[in-house]
């Protein structure tokens, strides 16, 4: 019950009650979008938003830049790890020669 699922808003169905349709991996259902609407992000601008859907409510707009940043860090960590391994093998090789 504490897990949410990412989905994309495909239409606004009732702007007064803040009801929209979301597509989650091809499954569509109506959700409430009150929590992602404010002066800076009015109802009309919600179509196309990626949101975290939780018990029938869009609880958060997924921040694309932050998602990319997390993945970038993970990638860098991979490169760092590869470099570390090369360093380790080369150091071991030198030590074996001595």
């Amino acid at each position: 019950m504490c897990l949410g699922i990412p989905g994309c808003i495909v239409s606004i169905d009732n702007a007064d009650d803040l009801v929209a349709t979301v597509d989650v991996s091809g499954v569509r259902r109506q959700i409430n979008i009150s929590c992602i609407v404010d002066e800076t992000h009015p109802v009309e601008s919600c179509v196309g938003d990626w949101v975290l859907v939780h018990v029938g409510f869009a609880m958060s707009r997924i921040n694309e830049a932050e998602a990319a940043e997390t993945l970038r860090l993970l990638r860098e960590l991979g490169e760092f790890q590869a470099e570390l391994e090369t360093m380790q093998t080369l150091t071991d090789a030198v030590a074996a020669e001595e």
Binding site: G4, L52, I62, N63, E66, A67, T70
Partner: peptide
């Protein structure tokens, strides 16, 4: 915060108000 893509530092004002 590792989960900044979904959980903004300030939380959700509309949700908290409700």
């Amino acid at each position: 915060n590792q989960y900044a893509r979904v959980a903004p530092a300030g939380g959700n004002a509309v949700a908290l108000q409700a």
